[in-house]
Nucleic acid binder design. Structure first.
Length: 707
DNA sequence: CTATTAGATGTTTTT
DNA sequence: CATCTAATAG
């Protein structure tokens, strides 16, 4: 009965985990609390399936990040080395990256050119902004949403599959007055994307769903997979559920894993109701629940359980730990942000003294800039760190410049990229760039204000037939070059020559192509930006990472779909001997764990963010986020509540608020922590708030009198 | 027509 | 600080 044959790895699992890993039916839901060995279970299931004779390439593993997919495939492979040494490749990745691969394969069936580009969020926002300008909606007038916000709204509509009006009313009430303008704008945006031959991230999902709905391609795609496994199912949205259901309906077996109490992507139209309603949607589904936590010590879990118990609506769930004992979590009340930064540094270093490497520690926070001051302090003390989440590499202007150039290699119709690249030339602004584009198109069109103006103007409601504007053609460069100012002529010619060469020699090594293009653009970058040298270095790194990529179009889209989380990521795998402290938003920390975790800026208004506290579901999601932060810790947990914080970090005034501890740190929850209040020089603990300030003055005056 | 500067302003989280 | 706008100088 316990004879697992060669599959001895199953012995390492507990009964529930094993049940999930070896579930023989066709639809399985695994409710796995934080730290309950979800990854191990999923890996074992993959291994088990392969052991049962399912070919690797017929297993589809959908995860939240590419890294998670890689890790699981690796582990499953290791489990199997003895039994199935020569197995094929598992198809794995995020919904978006898998969609991208499928859409590439079926591009022609979808009416897409082979070289279609993928826009990242920044590009999509730029495009929306261009459309907005053309439509004559001014940014400044009456709180019209800015580009990034427009994209948020658009994306939410698509992903929630909900009408614009509803989305506005529910999530963007301050933009409601512009509902009509936005609707019109979004339609233009959609047709413009088609004209430019580009897809945004949401399109990838839409196209995948469309492929599944089609009788021919749908059967083809679904037939390719015998098993579909979806991780983090609590964070899927309606569109993604449609895709999963589409695969299931065509016969693929389905395993979904998730934890409704870790649903933190509501702003992306994800909803825990999909995991909670799983059994209604898939009638034959069996459920396995994992509740034994192998990650955290009991005192840490007690805190986490107390926080989750505040949500009376969630399924009552209690994690219990195998790891008895351990130190109580600490609640620290520094006087202000600066004191908080110092307190974190002290504790990080103290933990390291006790043998917990920096890499086994993390500082977690609600928003990207919560760590600003801490970063300064860490730099000052020469403590190395890597920051995840927050501002990303791809947002940097010079990186976008290079990527735009790379996009043009495969898709000369991408006028958005043309526009960007041309304006890098000294003396070329929007006007000249537009003229050059006209020349490249060979169109005798009059003054254009931006890329593809006429296509946009024609795009009324339903006007999808943009009068196929002629595609810009590199061969007409000599005509366009007339518009380049004398001084930049040489740079421009070099750039175009590199582009022409890259387009022709598609067979050449990708790394070399990218490096050649990089070399052509670097002089421009150096001239354009004051810190050009640093930026040039970034680009070299980027170009170097293109070595080994299949081709340029894959390199670029993968970069967009799976952006390096930090610039350090690009430099390749960090050296083993490097010891870095991790700084991360809670969102980016999902699924990870550290020996010691420091949660900073846990004051009300920040965590929970006061924008989210308008409705109850918003607060509930913030609470889950807090829960996720707490459950990342294995042995040590410190939560910091600065007593005073400044509204404007860089302002000269000292407008500040007095921090209330996060509402999630209720009396009950607080009682599970050890408390630390700031100490005066004589070691006497100080009361908080205004009294603390007064007390400090007294101390210093006393000192003057020698007493 | 482009570059530079001054001045205002800013709802978080990410594939 | 970062980003966008408007106004002004080259």
């Amino acid at each position: 009965m316990f004879d697992h044959g060669p599959a001895g790895y199953l012995d390492a699992l507990n009964a529930q985990q094993r049940e999930a890993a070896t579930f023989p039916g066709s639809t399985l839901l695994v409710l796995a609390g934080a730290g309950t060995g979800k990854t191990a279970t999923l890996c074992s299931r993959v291994a088990w399936l392969m052991g049962e004779g399912v070919p690797a390439e017929r297993i589809l593993l959908l995860t939240f990040t590419r890294r998670a997919a890689r890790e699981m495939v690796e582990r499953a492979r290791t489990l199997l080395t003895r039994t199935a040494p020569a197995s094929g490749r598992i198809v794995g990745g995020t919904f978006h990256s898998v969609a991208h691969r499928l859409v590439r394969v079926h591009a022609s069936a979808l009416g897409l050119g082979p070289g279609f580009g993928v826009l990242d969020a920044g590009d999509a926002a730029d495009l929306l902004d261009i459309v907005r300008q053309e439509r004559g909606h001014s940014q400044s007038a009456r709180r019209f949403p800015r580009a990034a916000t427009m994209l948020d709204i658009y994306s939410r509509v698509v992903n929630a599959q909900a009408p614009l009006a509803e989305v506005l009313a529910q999530s963007f009430p301050w933009c409601e007055e512009h509902g009509e303008a936005l609707g019109e704008l979004f339609r233009s945006y959609a047709s413009r994307k088609r004209a430019l031959g580009v897809l945004d991230l949401d399109d990838l999902l839409l196209y995948w769903r469309a492929l599944l709905a089609d009788p021919v391609t749908g059967a083809q795609i679904a037939g390719a997979f015998e098993h579909v496994l979806v991780d983090e199912y609590q964070d899927v949205n309606g569109l993604q559920v449609d895709i999963v259901a589409g695969l299931r309906a065509r016969g693929a077996h389905l395993t979904a894993v998730g934890d409704d109490f870790q649903a933190i992507y509501g702003f992306r139209a994800a909803s825990a109701r999909h995991i909670l309603g799983f059994r209604e949607r898939f009638a034959d589904a069996q459920t396995v629940t994992l509740e034994c936590n192998y990650r955290s010590t009991t005192p840490i879990l007690d805190v986490a359980n107390a926080v989750s118990a505040q949500d009376r609506k969630g399924l009552p769930k209690r994690l219990w730990s195998e790891r008895e004992g351990g130190m109580r979590p600490e609640l620290v009340f520094p006087l202000d942000d600066a004191a908080q930064a110092r307190a974190v540094c002290e504790r990080v270093l103290a933990a390291r003294e006790e043998g917990i490497d920096l890499r086994a520690q993390a500082v977690l926070f609600r928003t990207g800039h919560d760590s600003d001051l801490l970063e300064l302090e860490l730099t000052r003390r020469a403590i190395p760190f890597v920051k995840y989440g927050g501002l990303r590499f791809l947002d940097a202007a010079h990186v976008k410049d290079l990527i735009a150039l790379l996009r043009l290699v495969d898709n000369a119709a991408d006028e958005l990229s043309w526009f960007r690249v041309l304006q890098l030339l000294d003396g070329v602004g929007p006007t000249r760039a537009a003229r050059m584009l006209d020349a490249l198109r060979g169109a005798g069109a009059g003054a254009a204000a931006g890329p593809g103006t006429e296509a946009g103007a024609a795009a009324g409601p339903g006007a999808e037939a943009a009068p196929a504007a002629p595609t810009p053609d590199l061969r007409r460069w000599s005509e366009a070059a007339v518009h380049v100012p004398e001084g930049s002529r040489e740079h421009a010619d070099t750039l175009i020559a590199a582009l022409t060469a890259a387009s022709r020699e598609a067979a050449a090594e990708t790394g070399e192509l990218v490096e050649a293009l990089c070399a052509a653009i670097v002089p421009l970058i150096r001239l354009r930006y004051p810190d050009g040298a640093v930026r040039a270095y970034d680009l070299d790194q980027l170009a170097a990472s293109a070595r080994g990529a299949r081709d340029i179009r894959h390199f670029v889209s993968e970069l967009v779909l799976d952006p390096p989380a930090s610039s350090a990521d690009l430099a390749g795998p960090p050296h083993l001997d490097d010891d870095f402290l991790a700084l991360s938003t809670v969102h980016s920390a999902k699924g990870l764990e550290w020996e010691a975790v420091h949660v900073i800026s846990a004051y009300d208004g920040n965590f929970p963010a006061d924008m989210a506290t308008a409705n109850e579901e918003g607060v509930a999601e913030e609470r889950r986020l807090f829960y996720v932060a707490l459950t990342r810790a294995r042995r040590r947990l410190h939560v910091y509540v600065p007593q005073r914080y400044y509204h404007r970090l860089h302002a000269s005034d000292d407008a500040h608020g007095c921090g209330q501890a996060s509402r999630f740190l209720s009396r009950t929850v607080q009682s599970l922590f050890d408390h630390t209040r700031p100490a005066a020089p004589d070691g006497e603990p100080l009361p908080s708030g205004a009294a603390a300030t007064r007390r400090r003055i007294e101390v210093s005056v006393d000192a003057l009198f020698g007493g």
